Simulated assay, not measured.
Amino acid sequence: MTTSSLPSRGSGPGSDFVAVHDPPGPDLANDTPQHNPAPWAAYVSPVAPPLGCKVCGVTPTAPVTIRAHRGLVVIMRWCRADGPFCGFCGIALVREMTTATLRQGWWGVGSLIIGAPVALMSNLLAYRKLRRLQLAVPVPGTVRPRLGKPVLHRPSAYVALIPLTWAVVVITHLVLSAS
């Protein structure tokens, strides 16, 4: 005798109900617990082969995270690119995202104090790791990003001087007025 909220076969007003699958119930005649001979923990996944660059597919690569930060007056916005990158693609991305952080990352108090400096330091560490990689030969048929100018040769990187100058002036004024 089963107690179920589902209608049984051939009963009730819609007697056309047919169970597609009857799950096995407990074996009441045999009180021994059922043993799973191969638990999921016993399966070991194979080791993945080393990945190429996320952009162009070449090796050697470095597993780095490149960050950009945009400081808006009230809120902050983070962007990041994870992956294995070859030296060429990774440095191009570091240059692009660092310039974006220097241009847009300083326009809020939290961004000025925490956000932009954290993104810039993270990108500096990623840049150092990518610079140590050997030069890779590009894979035929793939498109590599433009390396572009170094960060300090880009005019938009100097937009960061505006809020930094403002912060120095405000801090200097606060220190001198407190004396």
Rank of each mutant, 00 (worst) to 15 (best):
residue 130 L to W: 09
residue 42 A to D: 15
residue 35 H to R: 11
residue 90 G to S: 02
residue 71 G to C: 05
residue 92 A to L: 05
residue 86 C to A: 12
residue 37 P to V: 12
residue 106 W to I: 00
residue 171 I to S: 11
residue 95 R to T: 06
residue 72 L to P: 02
residue 128 R to V: 08
residue 109 V to Q: 03
residue 35 H to A: 05
residue 91 I to K: 00
residue 4 S to C: 08
residue 16 D to K: 15
residue 46 P to S: 13
residue 100 A to Q: 13
residue 132 R to S: 13
residue 66 I to W: 07
residue 122 S to V: 09
residue 36 N to G: 03
residue 11 S to N: 08
residue 26 P to V: 03
residue 160 A to M: 06
residue 77 R to C: 00
residue 55 V to A: 11
residue 153 H to F: 07
residue 68 A to M: 10
residue 95 R to F: 14
residue 53 C to Q: 15
residue 54 K to F: 06
residue 61 T to L: 06
residue 131 R to C: 08
residue 56 C to I: 14
residue 100 A to E: 11
residue 37 P to T: 12
residue 77 R to L: 03
residue 126 A to M: 15
residue 47 V to F: 08
residue 48 A to G: 09
residue 2 T to P: 08
residue 146 R to T: 10
residue 38 A to Q: 13
residue 72 L to Y: 03
residue 6 L to M: 12
residue 133 L to Y: 01
residue 124 L to P: 02
residue 178 A to R: 10
residue 68 A to F: 11
residue 113 I to M: 09
residue 11 S to H: 12
residue 111 S to T: 03
residue 122 S to L: 12
residue 158 Y to G: 01
residue 145 P to V: 12
residue 158 Y to T: 02
residue 49 P to W: 06
residue 113 I to N: 00
residue 172 T to G: 13
residue 102 L to A: 00
residue 36 N to Y: 14
